[in-house]
Write a protein that binds this DNA or RNA. Sequence first.
DNA 1: GGTCGGCTTTGACACAGATCAAACCGGCGG
DNA 2: CCGCCGGTTTGATCTGTGTCAAAGCCGACC
Lengths: 255, 255
Amino acid sequence: MTNTCETDAALSCTADAGGPGPSRCGHATTNVCASCRVKDISVCAALDPGELTALSAMSEKSVLAAKETLFLQGDVADAVYNVTCGMLRLYKLLPDGRRQIVGFLLPGDFVGLSLSERFGFSADAIETVSACRLDRATFARFVDLKPHLLRRLHEAATHELTVAQDHMVLLGRRSAEEKVAAFLLSMRERLRRLGGSSVTIPLPMTRQDLADHLGLTLETVSRVISRLARDRIILVVPDGIRILDLSRLERLGAS
Amino acid sequence: MTNTCETDAALSCTADAGGPGPSRCGHATTNVCASCRVKDISVCAALDPGELTALSAMSEKSVLAAKETLFLQGDVADAVYNVTCGMLRLYKLLPDGRRQIVGFLLPGDFVGLSLSERFGFSADAIETVSACRLDRATFARFVDLKPHLLRRLHEAATHELTVAQDHMVLLGRRSAEEKVAAFLLSMRERLRRLGGSSVTIPLPMTRQDLADHLGLTLETVSRVISRLARDRIILVVPDGIRILDLSRLERLGAS
DNA sequence: GGTCGGCTTTGACACAGATCAAACCGGCGG
DNA sequence: CCGCCGGTTTGATCTGTGTCAAAGCCGACC
């Protein structure tokens, strides 16, 4: 199967249309990104090989350095992106600069599927990121021909909505400690699905990013993490956190 | 045009498929519900009359008294509902009883469009509500035949997602006063689109409901409302709030 | 008309988390 | 090797909002 979307050998897309999710990383360790193999058109696992090839053929690879922005809130949404490597933050700003990170994007995730005129949030790279860019008009034309693809898009949007609603509960009704615990658990779950480790959670984002995602300040995030570490529930390692006592963490983050 | 979905003459659905949104109330005053005419299959304004008739024909009217529940989180999602009259709250509960109201449903709104196995939240009536119930399997079969309907569903989901993200900013990064102001403005906007008044906002929900929506306590909500009233920005009227100084309210709720 | 119950308002006080400030740490360039 | 810089940790203090408590309001029902 041909695949126009690749940066280097380690990242080349295997494009096996078999599994229900993204293909698993062969040897993921602390960092998802490092040579993690993720199909470039991941969400479209329901596609048959021909369709996948067609979609791949119209995608165009781009690489972003850390802190580079993919798009800004209000930009004309003329493209759809699929992350293949690295992590991005999606955020909204208030006029006075307060920021809410509405989500983090991991390999396999899509942005811009909403098919709306403009992006409702900004996106930028936390670390080096590679992503496939699909021209919006081309993508829309392709989708129009495939009702079941539209159905999958709808499922994806629906899933995002559920995630967003869970996050509302977190933001509106949970304590700082619960927020951090729940976040770690949800990140663990997402990474596991990507085939990553289930005990070590890479956290390429800063404490400020975490704070802006959880509705806290960076100091509070730091203090909570310190406390969890002191209580031997987690262990802080360079660029990440290792879960020592999963059941106690789950008790804190229970939903 | 026939229409099987009605409770009484005042509520009979006019089902004009012309406009982009729900049909406007002829004489809406303080309360949206009172004899407000809303098409029963509102979101489907893009449908042609034949399709609308077909959808109406498979819908079944139900009326809920205040506090009755439409469905609970986790229930098998075997139906899609369209509200024709009254207000509902959609909420999620934490194991210890803390509640987050993820949204309020107004006439014209749909629930259950996610096409997922189970409901992700509970829904119950704040006041007397009437709604059209569409069997899920029937609805799904109908949607399968109409790709452009699926497209509209996707648009609806996308819009809900945007609303959810805006609410995350509110919950995570705004003060109590800003939360209340922003809520009043957003409710005003929704009611205006339904053809309601732009100065008097009916609030059939309790202070506790407001608090659980905004991530506050009922006392704080009450205090903020009292302060806004003391400052002549709003006027508290029975079952609602009248906006006295829109520009000052907008300054507080600015996003 | 009385009173009962649910909801709201208001006050006094407590506390989780914010703010302010300083020290710390580790990687990188010179 | 040193010093800088961005990010993190930790401490001291402040404050917005939560908690607790009591009184007020109003409609429903006896």
